[in-house]
Structures are given as structure tokens and as C-alpha cells.
């Protein structure tokens, strides 16, 4: 096993901190977040409240910990939707390269690309009303063509290789070849893309809940904390800065992890060794 690159460790460590905070919040938070203590409002960071309090006197650290759950859950499920639907579509399209099926799948992908996740969220919300579920659906739908494309691209180059021909000479069908020979060899690409989509999902969820299309009160979310802080930013900048930093650090951690994984798993680099 080669030494893992430093940025992979750093990224994984940062990500792990946020995931751990989200998990910990189910068992314990420094302060309950459903109590309103007006007397304690907009306090800057102190020993008692490490990250200060918000306009209702709630502890910001506790809010961030609970908010991490929503961000991470939305992003994870959205990536899951993208992988579960996108990867089979991509494999299928590559296995039938040039046929109408491939064409149909790729045109469908292009079409989804014309609907940014915000627009999907707008459409869904207009009809079903806002919820965290909408955010998952909107980001998840947008992830489908991303994974379909990455899978198809990787798979197409594999289909030209002789080992696929050898498998066909051994009488194996397209489905079996896709599962046995193609999927394991695009897995690296998918892991890297999954990390990237995870971080994009965190950003998108924050954006959607910032404009009110994501998780609804009283569920705390990073994006809505920022929306609520907006009018108070000149009075108490800390209530805008800490949720933003939480987003930046999580996304940064995931991106570092993704880049590290790419360097570690890149088959072109591997072949040189």
C-alpha cells in the first residue's frame, strides 16, 4: 500500500469532525436549542457559549451541531440517488454505445442539466410546499446525469479494451461484462465524483435553505441560520460568520479528500509505478 497523500488525511479528518458533531448531536448538545432566552441574545463568543448566541439567545455551537445533521443527510441521500440511478444508466448507455438507447439516455441527461437544482427545487416547492425532502429530491435529480456521464465516459474507454473482447469471446453478455469488468474499474472514478457531489450537495442545500426552499423551522439548518442572521450582521457579525465557516470547512474538507482520493486512485498514476 502506498502512503496516502497528506491532503487526503487532512480532508478526511475535517470531514470526520463534522460527521462526528452531527452524530453527537443526537445524544448531547451543549445547550438545548428549543429554549428561547431573550435576555441572553446575540452574545459574542464566551467561555459559556463558545460561538456566542443568536437573536433568540440559543447557543450557536449547538445549533450548528444539529444543523450539520440536515446538511449531511441531504447531501448523502442526494449522492445516493445520483449513484443508484445514474450509474446503471451510464453503464447501460455505454454497453449500447451509439444505439437509440444510449442516445435517449444522453439526451435525457442533457435535459436535466438545463434544470439547475435550484430550478427543480422551485418547481417542486411551488407544487408541494417547502421541505428538506424537496432539497434532497432537487439535488438528487441533478446528481443523476452527473453520475451517468462519469460512468458512461469511464465505461466507454473500458469497452474498447481487449479484456472486454476476451470476455465476449468467453461468451459473456453485456450485463455480465458491465457488472464484472466495467463497474469495478469505474469505481475509483465514482468514489472521487461522489466526494465532489457530496460537497456540492452541502453547498446546494445551504443555498436552498437560505432562500427558504429547504428544511423548515424549527429544524435548524446552516443556510437558514445565515438567512436569519442577515439583518443583524452589523450588530453581531459572529452569528453570520460561524455558520458560514461551518459550510466552508465541511466543503473544504470534502474537496481535499476528493483531490487526495483522485491522486491516490488515479489509474494513470498507478500504471506508472
Amino acid at each position: 500500500m502506498r502512503r496516502l497523500p497528506g491532503q487526503l488525511w487532512l480532508g478526511a479528518a475535517v470531514t470526520a469532525v463534522f460527521v462526528a458533531a452531527a452524530l453527537l448531536s443526537f445524544l448531547w448538545v451543549p445547550y438545548a436549542i428549543d429554549g428561547i432566552a431573550i435576555a441572553n441574545r446575540l452574545k459574542p463568543p464566551t467561555m459559556a457559549h463558545w460561538l456566542g448566541t443568536d437573536q433568540f439567545g440559543r447557543d450557536i455551537l449547538s445549533m450548528l451541531m444539529v444543523g450539520a445533521r440536515v446538511s449531511i443527510a441531504v447531501a448523502v441521500v442526494a449522492v445516493g440517488i445520483g449513484i443508484l440511478l445514474g450509474v446503471p444508466l451510464g453503464l447501460w448507455a455505454a454497453a449500447h454505445r451509439g444505439a437509440w438507447l444510449d442516445e435517449l439516455i444522453m439526451r435525457g441527461n442533457d435535459l436535466i442539466f438545463a434544470f439547475p437544482s435550484l430550478v427543480i427545487a422551485i418547481l417542486i416547492t411551488a407544487v408541494f410546499g417547502p421541505s428538506a425532502f424537496n432539497a434532497i429530491l432537487a439535488i438528487g435529480i441533478f446528481n443523476i446525469p452527473v453520475f451517468a456521464r462519469v460512468t458512461r465516459g469511464g465505461a466507454l474507454s473500458l469497452w474498447t479494451l481487449d479484456y472486454v473482447l476476451a470476455a465476449r469471446v468467453a461468451g459473456k453478455g453485456r450485463l455480465r461484462i458491465s457488472v464484472e469488468h466495467i463497474l469495478p474499474n469505474v469505481a475509483n472514478l465514482l468514489i472521487v465524483q461522489g466526494t465532489i457531489q457530496f460537497s456540492l450537495g452541502i453547498l446546494a442545500e445551504a443555498g436552498l435553505s437560505y432562500v427558504g426552499l429547504g428544511a423548515q423551522p424549527p429544524t435548524p439548518s446552516w443556510g437558514r441560520m445565515l438567512a436569519e442572521s442577515q439583518t443583524l450582521i452589523s450588530l453581531a457579525p459572529h452569528i453570520a460568520i460561524f455558520p458560514g465557516l461551518a459550510i466552508v470547512l465541511t466543503v473544504l474538507g470534502l474537496n481535499l479528500m476528493g483531490d487526495g482520493l483522485r491522486d491516490h486512485l488515479d489509474p494513470r498514476l498507478r500504471r506508472l509505478r
Binding site: L203, Y210, G244, I247, V248, L249
Partner: peptide
Amino acid sequence: GIAIPNFW
């Protein structure tokens, strides 16, 4: 830069 949400 990639990690910063534009609205923040």
C-alpha cells in the same frame, strides 16, 4: 474559493 457559498 470553491468551498465558499456565494451568498455567504
